[in-house]
Every structure is written in C-alpha cells, then in structure tokens.
C-alpha cells in the first residue's frame, strides 16, 4: 500500500515539469509500470486522483502501460519473456538471469494542451 507515496512522487515530478510548460497545461501523464514493480495500477490511479485535487494537475489523467517481465540468461545470453513467474532460461534452464524489463516505475511522457 505505498501507491499513495508513489502517486505523491509522480505529482511532485509532474508539477515541476508543468511549471516549465506554462502556459500549456499537462493533460496526461504516461507511466510505464513493470509487472514486478510491486505497484498496483488501480490503487495508483485512485491515489493520484485523490491528491491532484486543488493542484494545477486537477484535470490530468494517468495513462498506464504495464511492462512484461523480460530476462536475459547469464549463462547463454538468451533473452526471453518470463512467464508464470518462472525465472529460468527456456533454452539452457539456468536460473541465473538478469532482468531487462519488469521492474519499471517510470514516467515515460507528459501530454500538454496549448
């Protein structure tokens, strides 16, 4: 349940950015959230909607893209999608893998309206 503090961080970052874009208004924020980020998108939207009230981002919406988990095998270098939480290389079965995607918690873009 730390979605609210994550929402707060997003709000702070985007408010700073919104200041630079004036007089244009920020109407949307694009987020990339990894499937393994530990963040539940619905709770994040709920939290963001609650705290944006009374700020210049009152009309701003979140556009959330979930990022699938992708790993690279340390042994054979194969890059693959991690399915059903099986973090093992489908080619050589090694369990020593590096995550390439899936832990994202990024603000990808903002959309502004003139």
């Amino acid at each position: 349940m730390h979605e609210l503090s994550i929402a707060q961080s997003i709000l702070e970052i985007v408010l700073r950015e919104a200041e630079k874009q004036k007089p244009a208004r920020v109407v949307a924020v694009g987020l990339k959230i990894g499937a393994l980020s530990g963040i539940y998108a619905d709770s994040l939207e709920f939290g963001f909607d609650a705290i944006k009230k009374g700020t210049p981002l009152e009309e701003c919406r979140l556009e959330i893209e979930e990022v699938a988990i992708r790993g690279q095998c340390h042994q054979c270098g194969h890059v693959f999608d991690v399915r059903e939480l099986l973090f093992a290389c489908p080619l050589c079965a090694s369990g020593s893998i590096e995550l390439k995607h899936g832990q994202e918690l990024d603000i990808a873009y903002i959309e502004v309206d003139d």
Partner: peptide
Amino acid sequence: TIELKKKV
C-alpha cells in the same frame, strides 16, 4: 507529447 523518461 513530451518524452520525460524519468524514474518515479
């Protein structure tokens, strides 16, 4: 659309 690519 303005790219930000910033970690939360």
